[in-house]
Design a protein around this nucleic acid. Structure first.
Lengths: 232, 232
DNA sequence: GCAAAAGTGTTAACTGTACACCCATGT
DNA sequence: ACATGGGTGTACAGTTAACACTTTTGC
């Protein structure tokens, strides 16, 4: 008590790092800013939190209205940035989210929005460059121990297509052979029974696969120190 | 545009889930609330964010002043809760942190604070029960692929003591033999050269070990889909 | 000597990478 | 037939759990 309502309040916004595989590259949805601060620089989609709104709903709303993104395959909270100087005009606390869009989606983007390669970002506003770096790290780690690939891949795909998606997201070569075996052993993939149409030039037609689950599942929970059989 | 400054602001607080191994059990620092809402229930240490303060500094400040906890071995951000109804009196956004205190520390706690067993929490205020659940999950996963044990263990310890700490934190039996081998192979442990004093009743004196690093290091980065030698 | 606790050697299971080989199709 | 890309079999390496065994102490 004493001073009754001396508790300060803060502007709060949600920021989205939305990834999509475009032309075999990992890309991020960014907007070019028209106004100061950072006029001309690129920024992540963001928007202020409304009075009775959840942060998750705030991200989804902004992505659905400002971009045409009502088809987000996956959305999860990343982290909250609170450095006092991160917005030079007015102190704003930002909670970042990681979003994934399937490579087959092709939403209508406004003029000033674009998918930019994640490994060669342009000049970014605020602390958005480091937020993207965090998101890439999270994505790459989570691709290793979960079925998160469903968020980037199409509904149906060949192993070669999936390999290209993983290679783009992980930033390194991936063996199609071993990717298939690992993901199938973990129960992430199942064959649809159909084959992809021939692309000309011969070659055995590729079987089509799909993810067995289209929501996040941890398929490799213990990197080490796993329980084992005896120690129940 | 239009309405110039219609952006709402919010109360923001930092919440801490501080773990400590006490008497061979994983315990959490909690306070018994004196006032409504949730008078009588137990709550995590928390406090409002100040005007020019970082969230991380806010947590550290509250733990250092309200409790005697200036010796936090590790502190990291967990997640931010924004459900409008989580505080029935006044909407408050809360950012949760995970903190670790070494088992040898014994800070002076106020009357209404206590270390409570993490697996048998009392009636908790707000959404704090689920925040603790998140923190336990994070702790257990991170113990598997990083050197986070340094935050819970003493500066020097025998393998048997370390085994008990891991067993308490993971909630299952752990083999001292294999724990030592895994952590030593990963370069997390090093022998001090000394041995622990005898505890009577015979037995070979235990060698003392320490963690080679006392800050977070990911020692087992790739659960799977690891790069390999060829795919550079 | 004997019990007790610590530490080591060894084996087997599992996981993932690398690579050779076979399969199915278009030209 | 043959080239081309898809898919499978197999060997090998690395990691970890399980457990028997040895070592070092107190009594």
């Amino acid at each position: 008590m004493a001073r009754s309502n001396a508790v300060p309040t803060f502007r709060h916004e949600a920021v989205a790092v939305v990834f999509k595989i475009t032309d075999g590259e990992l890309t991020v949805l960014v907007w070019q800013r028209a106004r100061d601060p950072y006029a001309g620089a690129w920024a992540l989609p963001s928007g202020p939190l409304e009075k009775d709104e959840t942060l998750g709903a705030c991200v989804a709303r902004h992505l659905a209205t400002k971009a045409d993104l009502d088809e987000i395959a996956h959305l999860e909270q990343l982290e909250t940035r609170s450095a006092p100087g991160r917005d030079p005009f007015q102190r704003t606390i930002a909670t970042a989210y990681l979003g994934l869009v399937q490579s087959t989606a092709d939403p209508q983007l406004p003029q000033n929005a674009a998918w930019h390669r994640a490994d060669r970002l342009p000049e970014m506003a605020f602390d958005h460059a480091s937020v993207v770096a965090s998101a890439i790290e999270r994505l790459q780690r989570k691709l290793s121990y979960s079925n998160l690939g469903f968020g980037l891949a199409p509904d149906e795909f060949t192993i070669a297509q999936l390999r290209d998606i993983y290679a783009a997201a992980l930033g390194r070569e991936v063996s199609a052979t071993n990717l298939q075996r690992v993901l199938q052993r973990r129960g992430q993939l199942e064959p649809t029974g159909r084959t992809a149409p021939s692309r000309g030039g011969g070659g055995r037609p590729a079987a089509l696969f799909r993810f067995t689950e289209r929501r996040l599942a941890i398929t490799d929970p213990f990197a080490a120190l796993r329980p084992g059989d005896r120690t129940v």
